[in-house]
Write a protein that binds this DNA or RNA. Sequence first.
RNA 1: GCCGGCAUAGCUCAGUGGUAGAGCAACUGAUUCGUAAUCAGUAGGUCCGCGGUUCAAAUCCGCGUGCCGGCACCA
Length: 644
Amino acid sequence: MPAITLPDGSVRAFDGPVTGTTIAASIGPGLAKAALAMQVDGALRDLSHEITGDAAVRFVTRKDPEALDLIRHDTAHVLAEAVQELFPGTQVTIGPSIENGFYYDFSRNQPFTTEDFAAIEAKMREIVARNAPFRRQEVSREDAIALFESKGERFKVELIRDLPASETISLYSQGDWVDLCRGPHMRGTGDIGTAFKLMKVAGAYWRGDHRNPVLSRIYGTAWRDQKELDAHLLQIEEAEKRDHRRIGREMNLFHLQEEATGSVFWHPKGWKLYRTVEDYMRRRLDDGEYQEVKTPQVLDRKLWERSGHWENYRKNMFMATVEDQDEAHRLLALKPMNCPCHVLIFNQGIRSYRELPLRMAEFGACHRYEPSGALHGIMRVRAFTQDDAHIFCEEHQIADEAVRFTALLSRIYKDLGFESFRVKFSDRPEQRAGDDGIWDRAEGALHEACLKAGVDYEMNPGEGAFYGPKLEFVLRDAIGRDWQCGTFQVDFVLPERLDAEYVAEDGSRKRPVMLHRAILGSFERFLGILIEQHAGRFPLWLAPVQVVVATIVDDAAPFAKEAAEALRKAGLRVDLDLRNEKINRKVPDHIAQRVPVLVVVGRREAEERKLVLRRLPGRDQVELPLAEAVATLSAEATPPDIRG
RNA sequence: GCCGGCAUAGCUCAGUGGUAGAGCAACUGAUUCGUAAUCAGUAGGUCCGCGGUUCAAAUCCGCGUGCCGGCACCA
């Protein structure tokens, strides 16, 4: 006699086992029509699921947040059916719902191309129109294996074999087509609607392991209705306009070319932006009581052997040799990171506990031979500069340093326009240096530090560095990709390997703990994200060109030059536009160049010695006497750390 | 690194085996103009590279390089 409690608190009793369909119908025809699935005691179920005991039930309709996941998952099934109908011999694997859509991985001799999309989409619409009900069937492991073996679906068989013994094995069919699936699903393929679209194809390794076969993955997007789909497609278009590669070209900030794959050619305006950020960072580090150093680019292999990098990362290091030396005995490597060099500085002379925590910072230029497929604009490159620092401290100082660090990072991110970011906690990886005791202490210290700093984080198991656990501070780019920028890593291993020590209060020699930390991560990556975050329209203090003084007629040129000079003297970055073009032309040009402030000078301004300031891309204008305009802009262009 | 796609003027792109094109940008000239693209003219190409097929290749084929989208990687 199940008693069903609904969200409004009302209770309905039924004579025997009852399905969601029956309950919904008992409540009313409107709900019976709208209900796609249900939540039973918090767990999402098919409407056809039979409830045998007392339960709390909530129905999921198209409006509910869960609906999108259901629609996307169901669409993935329909995609798989369509593909198998059109391309016999294709094996199915998995097809989950993901952010904004879904994908399905197929195994086929000939990978799919976007040329196949039209036919597949047409077939999908046909399947949706058939509105075949999704039917769930629970089967024994043996029956499931036999079924998929008979179909030649060896990936499905492998999945079933690897399911834990406790797992119920369920199949979902839509018409004649069957898939291994945990569910739940909506009532039938018709519930999907028509607001879906195939987006792209990609290769993907079976089970995400590069030693496994490559599958052909089809990505799609699916929404409640056409309006939502259109909005999503428009959003993608808008995001593409913020792409740093596009803006970098449009604003003439930098370029990349074949002769230096993975290295950035910074143009004058891009370099101005870079240096503005670097100068700002340097001031923040000075305030934070860091000591800046500069260390070598090219170092002997022996150092990398001692640090452990040779063993772990040799394949990703650039090597350098010179002709008059025996290569085997003197192989040099471009540094892939700065930490060993910093330990070498620490090791000069005898260190006292009184010097700790010692914060050693470097804008360190590093080279890493990244796999070709990883390169991405200026965000993933082979030559980059880190805002790197290593804090040598005693173990009990770790938490305080973490608190200081997160405060500094938050301040800096905020100044640069990032109000929010995600934090991931990456713990011990499979391949690592140091024994478990050390890792226990390092992870414990980092957890404690997070607690103390009030940092909310998500776990990222097994993703730590080989020498220690880390916090990763993640920012998102315009196209929705996440990038690790800041990092805070606890390291007990490297001080040991490179024999760093200090004299403790009791006169004994001790190992310092080393904290690796970066805030921007690499300038290249961070500037890429910064460009996308602001869509190239930087706040005044960051803009590479802050003001353009544009003339209307040649007669105004002398005063325009005088005004530009006055602005420059006040420290502003000013361009002069004396071109023989109409002002109607100059305005859109500078909007396109994302210049924050346009000063238009005609005869009237020249006579009255006034400046009219127009904040692009807006239309509003303020008219000020020259000196006042200079003072206003100069105050506004002051970096936030100096403004106080 | 793997799978797929792409590579034509500075940029965006057209050109499916038969004399390389457009718009914008550049340059020259005219115009001196009041807030979202003035007019006219000129110049600009190893059609990514190498090899092959063909009477003939930007176009078809092979190899290489780079870029793009994913996957894998990311100290």
